[in-house]
Nucleic acid binder design. Structure first.
Lengths: 150, 150
DNA sequence: CCCTTTCACTTGAGTGGTAAAGTGATGTTA
DNA sequence: TAACATCACTTTACCACTCAAGTGAAAGGG
């Protein structure tokens, strides 16, 4: 039996890359007392705040339950605040969260960029981004279809 | 302050894609009572068995502790066996594991392929694979360097 | 021959994720 | 108005992962 297809090879490379770069990212974020997942949440808030929990969960590809606990922790750290109106909780960064993010920001973006700048030219990065956008939209479509159906 | 770089945009698309496709993959594997991580381990064993725990951990980008627990579960399910020689445990698939994998195999490869076949041409997939190989090797180098240093 | 190192693996505490069941306010409807 | 549905969030139980400390067997040096 065949041991792979082109798709499976791409998939393998990509998951390995993401796993490895997450480890590295956690390493670089450790001095700031943040994890990669937490940074992701704070970034989304920075760009789109205020958001409801559901909207945030959607943006970071996490379930309701998952975001609920992450936000409990981030709230305990004093990095975000949740204000309840009606049945909805609106999430935004506290001043402390805002400041922390400002500190981490440049470093993390530089780290992320280095993963690609090291070995890909400008135009290759553009190509890669274009291809990734297409497959990500495809998986998002499939995912929503699956979630919608059940 | 700038909210992104080209690298950070690529990184975001890729992590979202991997997260979403993992969800879908877990969904498709559920009828077989397997998770994506378990399938990954079984596949590596299928291709490279026999392996020690350390070699396996390396291949699936997981720590010693992580692989230890996964293998306990897979052993309880009777899908793998671990035979101790000296201080090393050698891992291989049981007949049951071999059979299970044979059943799942085609479906999972077809699923993985569909993620790309849906929206990328043959030559685009080749391009994508080439670019990913380069960045994955780069991150692997950095990761090993980091692990080696500490 | 004991003492230490090393090596491969395990364990503990904690984070991050899922699915599925629970909670508690706010409509909606007979 | 009592019963029901719905919506946003929480909780529970589980898997997967990390780091760091622990274990136990073998190997080497005084």
């Amino acid at each position: 039996m065949r041991k792979n297809t082109r798709g499976s090879l791409i998939w393998l490379r990509m998951t390995r890359f993401v796993d490895q770069s997450n480890l590295l990212s956690n390493h670089f974020l450790k001095p700031y007392q943040l994890t990669t997942a937490q940074f992701d949440v704070l970034m989304q808030l920075f760009v789109y705040q205020p958001l409801t929990q559901s909207e945030l969960a959607e943006k970071v590809t996490v379930t309701q339950g998952g975001i609920s606990r992450m936000l409990v922790r981030l709230e305990q750290e004093g990095l975000i605040k949740r204000t309840q109106e009606w049945k909805t909780k609106t999430i935004s960064l506290t001043d402390k969260g805002q400041q922390k993010l400002a500190h981490v920001f440049e470093d993390q973006l530089a780290f992320q960029s280095s993963l690609f700048d090291d070995c890909l030219s400008e135009s290759e990065q553009k190509q890669l981004y274009a291809l990734l956008s297409r497959i990500q939209k495809n998986s998002e479509r499939k995912w929503k279809q699956y979630k919608g159906g059940q």
